[in-house]
Design a protein around this nucleic acid. Structure first.
Lengths: 239, 239
DNA sequence: CGTGCCCTTGAGTACAATCAACGTTCGTGG
DNA sequence: CCACGAACGTTGATTGTACTCAAGGGCACG
């Protein structure tokens, strides 16, 4: 059930079977959510963290005029609010983008895990630090990359992250988002995302149609985006 | 010596004297750095974390054409690379913006602290999560706020963070950065930062001259920026 | 088979970038 | 003490990327 989460961890470090058991034992409940549902609200007191099993979710903030900025996309296997374990409440909202299946992990269980498995504690701390690394890369995109490069970079990132959980390969992956949602990720308008996708398509780099990203030339796409996956820390080493 | 760091922690949680002692005992060495010096390089293996005692530093990434994006500013009392404890190497560079005095804390000491002081371990985990919260707020600025609002928001953030360590009040604070460096924070060009500062000055909100931010109307500035300090988690509660 | 959501395209606009020149400040050395 | 130079700041003119507004098309679902 939480195999994709285990795969995400094992892509970064070794995990003993005891540690794996401890994680599996921490799941209290499984829930199904509708698409377009704000599951966690800013400033709300939280007593558990949410592990995304299936579907796509995101973190976002918005301004008073309704403009929205998505700060990270979540895929299967991601803890969408592991940081709530230490923060107790979040500075942002979290919503589903598609129908989702999630597992709830009470903070008490996380507390037990971190006390009884110090290595696992560091590993989870490490996971929240990867989130921060993703935020930094997005800051670079939002601040300095062109519209086309922002979208290219986003596709490159998702390709690597989805590969880890067996949901992408070199040819492409499912991505059930609208162009408006891509715009909210990339700090653009939906219209401009549409034009940028057209440019990427016409240059033979990537096609985005019917909820699927078709990679025509992953190498050229990475070059255009100046994508270097090192910020995702996909290397097995002792953490 | 590390009083500002202690103040930063105490603004978020209670700290026992044993915990304080453990932190003080962790400092191995104090160093002085020149301004404009890249102290930590991307991908470099790290064995200690750097605590900023005095001065201003920043995290940044740049693109091949030389464009740079600063992803966070660091002030006195900040651990500039606490995340290197779990990451082992960073995805970004860290440089000084002014002359700086720093304390080095070996990762072994951090390991001891986290093993012997579980509460302190969570508190340091929490600190890295605040960094991520700052990154998210900057993503919102970079993606959705206007040029003027980005700069206004940056000043508001720094005012709160510097207040915590006693280096700002309601009237202003020292900020020894160039307009070009503000541009690298806000995803703008130096020329446009200059024009935006002029607009802020002429509207009577804030003046930035000779390394100092003079707050003419903090309330209006916060309104313009839609600044809400909650993302900085300045509330004392059990972490 | 209509209705609504999403995608696409065009025309006009605006905000920020670029290019360029000039002003100011400050440190340094004659 | 003043002259010079470099770095930083300021302003104007022009360009360009992305936004806005608007209309039409495709597709899925009831």
């Amino acid at each position: 059930m939480i195999d994709r989460h285990i795969a995400k961890l094992r892509a970064r470090d070794e995990l003993s079977s005891q540690e794996e058991d401890a994680i599996r034992a921490a799941v209290a409940e499984v829930r199904i959510y509708e698409p377009d549902l704000t599951v966690i609200r800013r400033a709300e007191q939280l007593t558990h963290s949410t592990l995304l099993l299936d579907g796509f979710m995101c973190r976002y903030k918005d301004l008073s005029d309704g403009q929205r900025q998505i700060s990270e996309l979540h895929v299967s296997g991601d803890f969408v609010d592991l940081h709530s374990f230490t923060l107790k409440y979040l500075d942002h909202d979290i919503m589903t983008l598609t129908p989702c299946r999630v597992a709830l992990v009470p903070h008490e269980k996380l507390q037990e895990i971190t006390e009884q498995h110090p290595h696992l504690a560091r590993l989870y701390w490490f996971l929240t630090n990867i989130d921060a690394a993703v935020h930094r890369e997005w800051e670079l995109s939002l601040g300095r990359r062109s519209a086309v490069a922002r979208i290219a970079h986003l596709f490159c990132e998702l390709q690597v992250r989805l590969c880890i959980v067996g949901m992408a390969d070199d040819r492409g992956f499912e991505l059930p988002l609208t162009q408006a949602e891509l715009a909210e990720c990339s700090g653009l308008t939906a219209v401009h995302v549409n034009r940028s996708l057209k440019a990427l398509r016409e240059d033979g780099l990537v096609e985005f149609r019917r909820s699927r990203v078709e990679l025509r030339s992953l190498e050229k796409l990475r070059m255009l985006a100046e994508f270097d996956p090192m910020y995702l820390y996909v290397d097995r080493r002792r953490r």
